[in-house]
Design a protein around this nucleic acid. Sequence first.
DNA 1: GTTTTGGTTCTTCTCTAACAGAACTAAAAA
DNA 2: TTTTTAGTTCTGTTAGAGAAGAACCAAAAC
Lengths: 163, 163
Amino acid sequence: MKSEQVLVKKVNLTKKQKELIERIGIFMEQQGLPPAVARICGLLMVSDRLELTFEEIYSTLNISKSAASNAINLLLNSHKIEYITKPGDRKRYFKVCIDQWEKMLKERLQGFSSYISLVEEIHNQRTKSTKTFNASLKDAVGFIKFMSKEFPLLYEKWQKSKK
Amino acid sequence: MKSEQVLVKKVNLTKKQKELIERIGIFMEQQGLPPAVARICGLLMVSDRLELTFEEIYSTLNISKSAASNAINLLLNSHKIEYITKPGDRKRYFKVCIDQWEKMLKERLQGFSSYISLVEEIHNQRTKSTKTFNASLKDAVGFIKFMSKEFPLLYEKWQKSKK
DNA sequence: GTTTTGGTTCTTCTCTAACAGAACTAAAAA
DNA sequence: TTTTTAGTTCTGTTAGAGAAGAACCAAAAC
């Protein structure tokens, strides 16, 4: 009476790694990503092997295939992960895009300038009688404009400082 | 047969103002605030009078008293709005904190540096064998550190440029 | 052809954020 | 004292996000 052998290819993780995955997960959830998505990113960031298969991902994280599939596609679409293939192997090997963090950071800085037109419009539409308030709004616009002009320069400066 | 007179003190708003409130609302929702909260902020930003009462707020926006109450308290706690009172008047007059936008923007820039310790920890915990990836992580840490050093300087620079 | 693999898609379920409405309250007005 | 005002708190309700599980599918292996 052989018991059914269910072999799941989980990735071996230390306690520390598991803990770190959770912390990355929480962090990324705060950036607006769903839990499963966040933890997949975490796993791909901390695991010793950088390229993991679909099965390794969902079985290691104990999430369903469907959850994994949707999450992975979301991450692929937003270019946070990518995959490679190997000759004579049907599987895809998923890994985080190497510049993911840098991209996230840059995005965050730029998303910033989306404020401009809105605040500007509020300023233009306002009654002229609220001088102080309007001045403060105008100031905000100035600040954003200043920043979005300086960021690229700062980025360049950093690039140079690396060399 | 007099019909019950329900007088609601709505704030008069132009079509343009209403439209702008919605746009501000959507924008702030994307920053993670609930719809009602976002639209209250919007209203207080665009209305000709900067200081509105509780009743004016909930009746103008067609939201319930409870929704308004909770939203207003949330905004008060996060110092996005404040209120003034007038002698011989029990009402509170709510208004956006004049530096709200600047604060939001600064917060956003700073929230940024919370990345450091996490990415650093990921880097430290990683196996040493994945050289390229680890180098890229280290690079990210460098970028964040660089940025959080430069921001205050940039802010100062802006302050000066205003004078 | 049949089976297995590597996923995808569909349906269902659950949980909670967000709000409404009504009951409540404390202070002020009458 | 009673009533009104300016909110607050409590109790549902509802819609949607997120995930599970099963059915499904296409390509490859057998």
